[in-house]
Amino acid sequence: MDQAKKEAALRSAKSDKGGVIYLKEGENRFLKEYEMNVTFKKMLEDSRCPQGVDCIWAGNATAEIELMGTYTRPMTFQLSTTNDARRGTTTTGNFNGYSISLVEVYPQTTAEKGFKARQGNYKIGLKFSKSSNGDGVTTK
């Protein structure tokens, strides 16, 4: 699927059957099915390889999200597109019995428009799944 079609699908989709929730930068939404409020606060970095450029490293994008359960205080997570212990990045966080993973970041940077030009216009896809390891804050 080309980039324009992906972005169009992202704009029209709110949630899909696979548990992916799409948020625009700055958007806040209460997710009744997960009993939590989710805020995509901002993109912290986007060093992904721009479209049409050959790169040695694929790069990384990191989003700051805030999660708050019905009976819990807010917690801030930094979720990235790569897991890299040396850089301190992770794709997944655990909260209220769910694993929340950053699975998509749009738009892709280009040689003409990098991170600074895209700030405020990002969209992310977060995948929610029941946590199997028992980590995270619990509301019950």
Results as ranks from 00 to 15, higher is better:
Ser101Leu: 09
Asn60Arg: 10
Glu7His: 09
Lys140Arg: 13
Ser101Thr: 15
Ser12Gly: 12
Gly18Ser: 11
Thr92Phe: 08
Ile21Val: 15
Glu45Trp: 02
Met68Glu: 02
Thr72Asn: 01
Tyr106Trp: 13
Thr62Met: 08
Ile21Leu: 11
Leu67Ser: 03
Lys32Met: 08
Lys14Trp: 10
Glu64Ala: 03
Gly88Arg: 11
Gly97Ala: 05
Asn121Ser: 10
Lys14Tyr: 10
Gln3Ala: 15
Thr138Glu: 09
Phe30Tyr: 15
Ile100Ser: 05
Glu7Pro: 02
Thr91Ser: 14
Lys24Gly: 13
Asp84His: 05
Met68Tyr: 00
Asp16Phe: 09
Arg118Trp: 00
Ser101Met: 10
Gly136Tyr: 08
Leu79Pro: 03
Leu31Thr: 06
Met36Lys: 04
Lys123Ile: 09
Glu112His: 05
Lys41Pro: 01
Thr138Ser: 14
Lys6Ala: 13
Lys41Tyr: 03
Ala117Lys: 15
Met43Ser: 08
Thr139Pro: 02
Pro107Phe: 13
Arg118Ala: 04
Ser131Lys: 04
Ser132Val: 14
Tyr106Cys: 08
Asp2Ala: 05
Arg11Met: 02
Phe40Thr: 03
Leu10Tyr: 03
Ala85Tyr: 13
Phe95Ala: 03
Asp46Leu: 07
Thr92Cys: 09
Asn60Tyr: 01
Phe77Val: 02
Thr138Asp: 08
Arg73Asn: 02
Ile124Ala: 06
Gly114Asp: 12
Tyr34Ser: 00
Val103Leu: 06
Lys41Ser: 13
Phe30Thr: 07
Leu44Ala: 03
Pro107Thr: 14
Ile56Pro: 01
Asn121Lys: 10
Ala111Leu: 12
Ser99Tyr: 05
Lys130Gly: 04
Thr90Gly: 12
Ser80Gln: 07
Gly52Ile: 07
Thr91Val: 14
Gly69Val: 00
Ala61Asp: 07
Thr76Gly: 00
Glu104Pro: 03
Gln51Ala: 11
Thr90Asn: 10
Val38Gly: 02
Glu64Ile: 00
Leu44Thr: 07
Phe95Glu: 06
Gly59Pro: 09
Ser131Cys: 06
Ser129Gly: 13
Glu27Lys: 09
Asn133Lys: 03
Phe128Trp: 06
Lys24Gln: 11
Lys32Pro: 04
Asn94Ser: 14
Asn60His: 02
Thr82Leu: 11
Thr110Ser: 14
